[in-house]
């Protein structure tokens, strides 16, 4: 009699633990793996665009084409520092949620979003004050398309952070056990960051 009680309770425990481990249905959560695979594909778009830019540059006799004004460096450098440090700020947010500190996560994520917004504003200001436009020559076209495409990604990243912040208002939505949303948003943000470092190097510095 006693033996069978133990059996039933153990099975029930096993079943409930099994159910807990699952995101949906009843298999373990593979979404973070999926995010990595998605970022692999994303990075290939940027790689293709960078390769196009570098080829244009390698083939041209004079680069940038004659009559292209010098690029202002001060603002983009400041912008780079802001974006790169925002990655570290965001990481603090994820450390917080790993310790079940939702308020801490919210704080760090909000600061990250603020820094991202400052970056975008700086980029907008640069667009506004630049002395060249999209169709002037091959350099200006690639400049706007590359930075613009990256800016779109920053905007999307801000959207992800906003979603996480909104969802975190519901208590128990994110815990130290279950925090796919913040983790995925952070991965995406790091990705956008790394792309910017490459972009900044080949477009502004090198």
């Amino acid at each position: 009699m006693q033996g069978s009680t133990v059996d039933t309770s153990q099975t029930a425990m096993a079943v409930s633990q099994h159910a807990e481990a699952s995101g949906h249905g009843d298999h373990p959560d593979h979404r973070i793996f999926g995010v990595y695979v998605f970022l692999l594909a994303e990075s290939m778009i940027f790689l293709g665009l960078f390769a196009a830019y570098l080829t244009f540059r390698a083939v041209a006799d004079v680069w940038p084409p004659q009559g292209t004004p010098e690029l202002e460096l001060l603002l983009p450098t400041a912008n780079t520092i802001i974006l790169v440090s925002s990655s570290f700020v965001m990481n603090r947010g994820n450390q917080a949620i790993r310790q079940n500190d939702v308020a801490g996560m919210r704080k760090w994520f909000a600061i990250t979003a603020l820094m991202g917004a400052v970056f975008l504003l700086g980029q907008g200001y640069e667009y506004f004050t630049n002395e060249f436009s999209l169709t002037d020559n091959l350099f200006t076209s690639t400049f706007y398309v590359l930075t613009g495409f990256h800016g779109l990604h920053v905007t999307f990243g801000l959207g992800l952070i906003a979603v996480v912040l909104l969802r975190s208002l519901k208590s128990g939505r994110y815990t130290n056990e279950s925090h796919f949303g913040p983790e995925a948003a952070e991965l995406y943000w790091h990705f956008v960051d790394i792309v910017w470092i490459v972009l900044f190097t080949i477009l502004y510095l090198f």
Binding site: V37, L40, A41, E42, M44, I45, F46, L47, G48, L49, A52
Partner: peptide, 11 residues
């Protein structure tokens, strides 16, 4: 697919 299709999208 993952490595090559995005480059077509870029083009």
């Amino acid at each position: 697919i993952l490595v090559s299709t995005p480059v077509l999208a870029g083009a």
